[in-house]
């Protein structure tokens, strides 16, 4: 018994040492690293890199330096407010007449991190009324969940199942070829959004569906996928330009845009694994700058805003701060599990 007790104590001390010593080493030796701010300029035809170390430097990939005002002019969709305030906002950009309001309507930001994907979901979702009588969206008075063979709407006031609505939505999903239970359910439960694109569902057979509640009735649309493409993560987007239904990433690490009419377009992003990599998209009416944060480098892709084809790419290596050791938490997920 004494030996067994000592083994348990030794394992405990070893685990604590393997956990804390690397953490202390990383804490003491950590060096500040500021990731540069990179945006593609369609006017310049190159990435503009803003590096903030001791001094701020702004340059392109060929090393041409710019001052602040020049960068404002090269990135008019990003610095639109500054250009308007200075009276420098151009009448047209790339031969196209533009108004500041147009820029505001078409600019968007999108962000996905592994922690948004790797966590235990509550299993309860909200489906807004997509055609509300009032201008502002309101939180619905019911929530939904999926069982192995149906969708169930739960009245939140008394925690009871709304059988009529559940049957109506289940029937519609089955009619449209949906296979229960879904692998993934993506919604945006933010009542401050301007409109509602419903939910994106990846069913048990790997098909992608859009589910909405329109005037209290179900609207289900299957999103046609190319052969061999199996979506693994879906994102509902409700940007102001209303051009897109959402995004999805596939098991082959490709990334697609779902247009508002339900058609899909493959982007020029080489690979993106939402479980291990972060993505940030800063989009405007001419181009998208996509940043994929991998373990050792940040990769930037400039995409055309109309067909999402690749214009240019850039890779910036990051200094590794990896220290081997035992850890219970991870920046890649919201789980507590020991891992090396």
């Amino acid at each position: 018994m004494k030996n067994f007790s000592k083994i348990i104590l030794a394992i405990t001390i070893a685990a604590i040492a393997a956990w804390l010593l690397p953490w202390c080493y990383a804490f003491v030796t950590a060096k500040a690293y500021s990731s540069p701010f990179v945006l593609y300029s369609s006017l310049h035809g190159d990435f503009i890199i803003t590096q903030r170390d001791n001094v701020v430097s702004r340059h392109d990939t060929n090393g041409n330096e710019f001052d602040e005002n020049e960068v404002d002019s090269l990135l008019p969709t990003m610095y639109m407010r500054q250009l308007v305030a200075d009276g420098r906002f151009p009448d047209s950009i790339l031969g196209k007449h533009v108004e500041p309001q147009q820029i505001q309507m078409t600019n968007f930001n999108f962000r996905s991190t592994p922690r948004d994907v790797n966590y235990v979901n509550a299993g309860i979702y909200f489906l807004f009324e997509s055609m509300p009588k009032r201008v502002d969206l309101e939180m619905p008075d019911d929530a939904f969940r999926f069982t192995d063979n149906r969708i169930e709407f739960l009245s939140m006031a008394d925690n009871s199942i709304n059988e009529a609505k559940s049957d109506m939505f289940t029937r519609m999903l089955k009619e449209k070829g949906f296979t229960f239970p879904p692998r993934k359910i993506a919604t945006n439960p933010d009542p401050r959004k301007e409109y509602d694109n419903g939910a994106l569902l990846i069913d048990a057979s790997g098909q992608l569906f859009n589910l909405k509640c329109t005037a209290g009735r179900p609207y289900v649309k299957q999103i046609p996928l190319p052969d061999g493409i199996i979506p693994c993560e879906a994102y509902v987007t409700e940007f102001r330009n209303r051009a897109y239904l959402g995004f999805f990433s596939a098991t082959d690490k490709s990334f697609y845009v779902i247009m508002s009419d339900g058609s899909i377009k493959k982007t020029g992003i080489k690979t993106f694994d939402p479980k291990t990599e972060s993505a940030m998209i800063i989009g405007n009416m001419f181009d998208w700058t996509v940043k994929i944060t991998r373990t050792d480098a940040d990769e930037y892709y400039a995409l055309r805003a109309d067909d999402f084809s690749l214009i240019k790419e850039l890779k910036i290596n990051r200094p590794s701060s990896y220290v081997p050791g035992l850890s219970f938490t991870s920046p890649l997920n919201k789980y507590v599990i020991p891992h090396f």
Binding site: I16, W19, Y335, V336
Partner: peptide, 22 residues
């Protein structure tokens, strides 16, 4: 000292149900 470190393992949860698999 050992106990403090061991006990802290039970309070690392960054989110609900974070410990499920552990």
């Amino acid at each position: 000292t050992i106990s403090i470190f061991v006990i802290s393992i039970y309070f690392l949860a960054p989110a609900p149900e974070a410990y499920n698999s552990f």
